[in-house]
Amino acid sequence: MTVKQFFKSTSFKCIISLLCILLVCGVFLTIAYGFLEVTDEERLNRAISKIYGEKVSVEKAPYEGYENDKAFILEAYKDDKGDYLVKSKGTGGFNGTVTCWVLVDVEESKIVKVSRVTIETSDGETFLGDIDYLDKFPLTQYKDGFEYTADNGFKTSGATKSSTAINNAVNGAVGLVNGILNGGFNEQV
């Protein structure tokens, strides 16, 4: 096939058509992205507003990664009241994962309770996806007067297997905050 034949061939038309469509779509999406971009900071502010129900200023908590075989901490923040907001991913139960925001209330450098647990995503067979606030969820621990120990972890009453992932996520968050408050991370959660 000569060069002239190639330029007149169906193959060339196909390549040009596809490239033109790709170019137009690419330009369109680039322009749209310029107008509709949502930054990480904006996402964080939205998540915080959803959890607190109002705008609250937070600062990144001083930690450098924390994980065990049951939970993985994705983000941690300290709000202006001194409470900690932790994004934690828990595993276990029916082999799914639950990523949730856990609000750990702190008074006088001591954990007093977990006031809110908001599920962000749940992947796999966790059978958990609609828990929002702690007062809607039957808890046996983390009430006023709670004292953190490795054995006194977050535990739900009922649905024990399907709640394993969320228990682990919350315990991971509490373990992290406990570690921060005591100047070192507690690996036992």
Binding site: T10, C14, I21, L22, C25, A32
Partner: peptide, 22 residues
């Protein structure tokens, strides 16, 4: 062209879906 219609459709649909996501 008929030969590349499916890839073209996919590109168009993917663009619309990406825009809808944004």
């Amino acid at each position: 062209p008929n030969e590349v219609r499916i890839p073209c459709y996919i590109v168009i649909i993917a663009t619309l879906v990406t825009f809808a996501r944004m």
